[in-house]
């Protein structure tokens, strides 16, 4: 039994229980439906801004991009403008590839030892593929939820829903992204459990967001396909929140409040967790800097003078020997008077 994921699992279960008991037994709909979501959003925004500005407050004293291709050099050598960018455009393309297509993970290999022994490094595609699937479906799911917050629902959002439910599977139509989201997070979880090195390096803080997202996905799917909630009430509540006229409509199932609490926790937890890799990747100096320091000076704002061993001190120490070896010197040897 791995304690680390048990802590996280229990934490999520406790959250679910809190919402369940709070709504079913104590009738705290106002707390779970209004107060906590507002607090969560506030924490999210404030925390997010605080963390990013905190990063921003530390300067980048040196330009240290990881170069993954040929540098800009003599005109006849092909410069890898993306993996070793020297211009802002190059950097932007590199960042786009990184953020939109997970360029670095795409490069991932798996070390394998074969008979021989011969080492081989095999392309490791699954982490890349599943991460892409996970992040994109998560994004779509997030955007899709805007239908609860926007009235009238914009056309583009309806198109998105239309595409997402292209295959008429079940009633109401299955959102493909929801299923992919659940599948991908499950994969990411199993990976942490089954790969020994992943298990070894994983912390409770790695399992917690996974359980949180899995639970959010499951409760969402349950609400849509299995144990229905009163959707108009849900939207009324959501619009109420978005327009600062919070209300608690009757008849929304407890499952919704569990979902909402988990989402609130997700948002509130976000700024204090590794989930900050989302803004972090934009600020990562090994990726967002150009490798141009040999032709464009990078300024270190706190550069300070240091003590060095000057040539004069050096010559003073070795002058005699230098002259002996025929090396030019700045000052001749002092004439030492013999006593």
């Amino acid at each position: 039994m791995n304690q680390k994921y048990m802590y996280s699992l229990i934490a999520v279960i406790v959250l679910i229980l809190i919402a369940y008991v709070g709504v079913e037994a104590a009738g705290l709909q106002v707390l779970f439906g209004i107060i906590l979501p507002y607090i969560a959003v506030l924490i999210f925004i404030a925390g997010f801004v605080y963390r990013v500005m905190d990063w921003a407050s530390s300067p980048v004293p040196f330009s240290i991009p990881s170069t993954c291709g040929q540098q800009k050099t003599l005109s006849w050598i092909k410069h890898d403008k993306i993996d070793n960018p020297t211009t802002t455009t190059g950097v932007i393309i590199r960042m786009m590839l990184e953020i939109l297509l997970f360029r670095s993970l795409f490069r991932n290999t798996k070390f394998a030892l074969n008979e021989g022994p011969k080492i081989s490094y095999v392309w490791e595609k699954w982490l890349w593929l599943v991460s892409l699937a996970f992040h994109y479906s998560f994004l779509v799911v997030l955007i899709r939820h805007l239908r609860f917050f926007l009235e009238p629902v914009p056309v583009w959002l309806q198109w998105l829903e239309e595409v997402d439910t292209f295959f008429q599977l079940g009633l109401p139509g299955l959102f493909l992204t929801g299923a992919i989201l659940l599948g991908a997070t499950t994969f990411l979880f199993l990976r942490r459990i089954y790969l020994p090195e992943m298990r070894y390096i994983s912390l409770a803080a790695d399992y917690f967001p996974l359980f949180l997202i899995i639970s959010i996905a499951i409760t969402g799917i349950l609400m849509r396909y299995f144990t229905k909630v009163y959707i108009v009430g849900v939207k009324e509540l959501a619009i109420g929140l978005a327009s600062f006229h919070p209300t608690i409509p009757d008849g929304i199932g407890v499952l919704f409040y569990i979902h909402l609490l988990l989402v609130s926790v997700f948002f509130a937890y976000f700024p204090f967790s590794k989930l900050m890799h989302m803004p972090g990747i934009f600020l990562s100096p090994t990726r967002n800097l150009a490798n141009n320091t040999r032709f464009k000076r990078h300024i270190n704002p706190w550069n300070y003078p240091v003590e060095t061993h000057t040539y004069e001190e050096y010559e003073d120490e070795f002058r005699e020997k230098m002259i002996g070896a025929g090396l030019p010197v700045e000052k001749e040897l002092p004439v030492v008077e013999k006593e």
Binding site: I10, I13, V14, I16, L17, Y20, L222, M223, F226, T227, K228, G253, V254, L255, I258
Partner: peptide
């Protein structure tokens, strides 16, 4: 308690429908 919690977590919300 945890056992109970686990069971109720599974059965959550499905009750009225069932």
């Amino acid at each position: 308690f945890l056992k109970l919690a686990g069971i109720s977590a599974l059965g959550l919300g499905t009750k009225p429908v069932l």
